[in-house]
């Protein structure tokens, strides 16, 4: 799995590629934790290149949502593939997260 982080003062995009599972999710967690420690107002996780995600990946994203929520930040997910979307549906988390079709939309929409 590869994690690329691009950020400025107000926004951060974490682009993930590869499978997100028990082995690889700590790397994604590290990126999310570092950005939330800096209290970046908007964090977008781009999952365009993720074909597989298990519960440890989903749990990491839930943690990201909770960490950013503590400082009233915004945590968004973009570009879910159908296989990953299904995991969110099975875990009934599709209504919990702010999910966007594209990274651009996730960055443009004003915080709710």
């Amino acid at each position: 799995m590869q994690v690329i982080v691009q950020h400025d003062k107000n926004t951060a995009v974490i682009s993930i590629s590869g499978d997100v599972d028990l082995y690889s999710s700590p790397e994604m967690r590290k990126a999310i934790t570092q950005l939330s420690k800096k209290k970046v107002p908007l964090i977008v996780v781009n999952l365009k290149d993720v074909d597989y995600m298990d519960s440890s990946g989903v749990a990491t994203l839930v943690e990201g949502l909770q960490l950013t929520g503590k400082y009233k930040g915004c945590f968004r997910i973009a570009c879910l593939k159908p296989t990953v979307w299904e995991v969110f549906e099975l875990a009934r988390l599709d209504r919990v997260f702010e999910i966007y079709e594209t990274e651009e939309k996730a960055l443009k929409v004003s915080p709710l």
């Binding site: 519960s55 749990a59 839930v62 995991v87 875990a91 009934r92 988390l93 919990v96």
Partner: peptide, 17 residues
């Protein structure tokens, strides 16, 4: 818990899946 939107916690998801 999952029936109540927004009250989710990271633990236990695997077993539920």
């Amino acid at each position: 818990k999952l029936k109540r939107s927004g009250s989710v916690r990271p633990g236990g998801l695997g077993v539920m899946l």
